[in-house]
Amino acid sequence: MKPPKFRYHAPSSQAEALDLLNAYGDEAVVLSGGQSLIPMLNLRLARPAEVIDLGSVGGMDLIVTEPDAVSVGARVTHRQMEADPDIARHLPMARDAAGFIGFRAIRNRGTVGGSVAHADPSAEWPVVLLALDGSVDLRSKSGARCLGGDDFFQTVFTTGRQADELVVSVRFASRFADNWGFSEFQRRTGDFAVVVAAVACAAGSGGIGEARVALAGVADRPVRCPEAEEALIATEDPQAVAEVARDAFDPVGDSHGSTAHRKQLVYAQVLRAAGEALARRDKGRPDG
C-alpha cells in the first residue's frame, strides 16, 4: 500500500498553483491536508500524474466573518473549525460537525476545502454546506466564480470544479446560528458517517420562514430533501419531517447497512436533527 508514481509540485503562491493547474488540468490533483487523498493514493484508488501540494501556499487558512456569512479558507483545518470562536458563534453546526470528522490527528491536517473538493457523498462538510446555504469560491488562471452547493456537488467524488480551478474558500451563511440541528450516525467514534442529517431553519412571519434539510450517505452526493423542508415549515413536527425524508430516498446498501436499514437511519437522524433545530428555536440560543 504505497502511492503510485507521480510528480510532486510545491508551489509557493496561489498564482503558481493556478499556473500548474492550468498546465496539467485533469492530470493533476491538489493536495491540501491529504487526509482523503493520501489514503486513496496508498490504496492506489487514485493515480494522478501530478500532485500539487498547497502546503507552501499562504493566505488560504483564514476564517473571515462577513455580514451574513463566514468565509472559510480552503486550507482551514477541521481542528480550526472545532476551536475557532467565530465559528462557534456564527456557525455552531459547523463546529459540531467538525468534531465528527475522523480522529484528532486527522482533524489536525484535514482541510475544509479539501473535503469539499473531494466530494465524498457521506462526508460532513458537503452536507453542512448544503444545509447552511453555502457556496464554493473557485479560482483559475482566467478568473474566479462561485458555485452554490447544489451546483457544486455532482456525483461521487465529482464536482462542478473545472480541471484548472482551485477551491480557494467556502462560504457558509450565518443566519441559521440559532435554529439548527446536526445528527450523524457512525458505527464507532471517528468512522465515516453512515447517514448524516443537517437541518437549518430561519424564522419567518409567525413560524419557520426558511427550512433546509440536507442529508449525507443517502445518494451519490449530499442532497437536500425539499419534501422534508416543506413538511418542516408546514408541521413543525420532527416525526412528520423524518417520515417524509425516509420515504424520499432509497440509499444503496453496503456492509454497514442495507437500503432498508439506511432508510431507518435517515428517519432517526432527521428526527433528531429536526428535533434539535426546533428545540433550539424554542429555547433561544443555548450554545451562543
Binding site: M1, K2, P3, Y8, L31, G34, Q35, I38, P39, N42, L43, V51, D53, R79, G102, F103, R104, A105, I106, N108, R109
Partner: peptide
C-alpha cells in the same frame, strides 16, 4: 494500516499529531 485508521504511525508535526502514513 497505511490508511489512517489505526494510529500506530502517529507523530507530532510542529507539535500537532499527524498520521505519518498520511503525509508525504
Amino acid at each position: 494500516c497505511e490508511h489512517g485508521y489505526c494510529g500506530s504511525c502517529t507523530v507530532l508535526v510542529d507539535g500537532a499529531s499527524a498520521r505519518s502514513c498520511l503525509m508525504l
